[in-house]
Write a protein that binds this DNA or RNA. Structure first.
Length: 358
DNA sequence: AAACTTCTCAACCGCTTGCAT
DNA sequence: TATGCAAGCGGTTGAGAAGTT
């Protein structure tokens, strides 16, 4: 059968448009409207394919197109929408009056993407990348900066503390997320033995703080997304590691906790208040800390296997693939909430492939 | 000033989607 | 339901501009 070509291959002009062609196209559309793009070029006296005319009109000649540099607000909006929608440029453009999908896509690829990478943020997942930023910043300084950079003792201590995570990229990512989250200062950890307790404490504290912040007002999309990821991560740790819940907690309470975590997550998706008592009733921080007072290799492995559990979802890690299916991405965000923070090892390895971004 | 590299963005290509028949 | 077509979408390309050596 074969698909019919969008236009005859012969006799049609390609390449940059001339002012005369622009004039003809604008004049025709002003008079007759857009109508049928296939017949438009012939009627307008243009030796172009209809597709080319449509593109020229929608991306350049349309009177409502905003020209000039993107404002800070527009840039913020793009980043936030991209964190939710992925590479759905037309959907993003629909929320930015006067901007075309092509323009936004170009701006993303030439400006925003590069800047996020420089900031150590993965432009696909919008998650911080400790593997690229913090560690490499300590170890691989660019030549220009190398001469004047001397890692402090604190830098080296912190680096040494993270060494046990080297074999657990998922935990490295979690640490990265925790480190780079607002209000989460880099730990003054000199002893690797303190690392796991710190991570758990930071994770739980952030989950609690995020819940407290779930005010009725709308959250900014990006921030919202980040909170959701943190909460999912914490919720997963609670649900998948029952031994981390206080020994006195009954099965019913644990179920309630799991349900509360689910509701909390869904509530976060809709900007609603969380059910009260989720943290206080379910978790006992001293007990949690007691459970991880011996952060040896088996402990790390256990926790690692928790976050790399069989489920393929990955919100908790901040490792999502919105570009593959933004709609699914949104649903996926909601559904993962009730479940767990799961990492796909394959995605992690892709994420850790620095060469993609160099 | 010339050569080279990097950046920008308009335009194209090919695939998907939605609608009419 | 199957098919064909138009429109829409996202990834990619390449020419020209701008910057650097």
């Amino acid at each position: 059968m074969g698909r019919a070509p969008c236009c005859e291959k012969s006799g049609l002009k390609k390449g940059p448009w001339t002012p005369e062609e622009d004039e003809k196209l604008v004049a025709y559309i002003k008079k007759h409207g857009q109508g049928n793009w296939r017949t438009l070029p012939k009627n307008a006296g243009l030796a172009r394919c209809g597709k080319s005319c449509r593109l020229r009109w929608t991306n350049y000649l349309r009177p409502d197109i905003k020209r000039g540099r993107f404002s800070f607000e527009e840039e913020e909006t793009i980043i936030q929408l991209h964190s939710i929608l992925g590479n759905k440029w037309s959907a993003i453009a629909a929320r930015l009056p006067g901007r075309t999908d092509n323009e936004i896509k170009n701006y993303w690829n030439t400006h925003i993407r590069k800047r996020l990478l420089r900031m150590g943020i993965d432009p696909v997942t919008h998650a911080p990348r400790l593997d690229l930023l913090d560690l490499s910043a300590l170890l691989i300084k660019p030549p220009a900066a190398a001469a004047c950079y001397y890692p402090t003792q604190a830098d080296l201590d912190t680096l040494r503390a993270f060494e046990p995570l080297a074999g657990y990229p998922d935990l490295l990512r979690l640490a990265s997320t925790l480190l780079s989250s607002p209000g989460s200062a880099a730990p003054a950890i000199a002893d690797p033995q303190q690392l796991l307790p710190w991570m758990l404490q930071a994770q739980m504290a952030q989950a609690a703080a995020a819940m407290a912040q779930q005010a009725p007002q709308q959250q900014q999309a990006g921030h919202h997304h980040q909170l959701m990821q943190q909460q999912a991560a914490a919720g997963a740790a609670c649900q998948q590691m029952p031994e981390l819940v206080h020994a006195n907690t009954t099965v019913a309470q644990q179920q309630q906790l799991a349900a509360a975590a689910q509701h909390q997550d869904m509530a976060a998706c809709h900007g609603m208040q969380a059910p009260a008592g989720y943290v206080d009733d379910g978790l006992d921080m001293p007990a949690l800390m007691q459970m991880v007072q011996q952060p040896d290799a088996s402990n790390l492995q256990q926790w690692s296997s928790t976050v790399t559990s069989s489920n393929n979802n990955n919100v908790g890690s901040g490792v999502s693939t919105p570009s593959s299916s933004p709609v699914a991405g949104l649903n996926h965000t909601a559904t993962t909430y009730g479940g767990a923070a799961q990492f796909s090892l394959q995605q992690l390895s892709e994420l850790l492939d620095v060469s993609d971004y160099m």
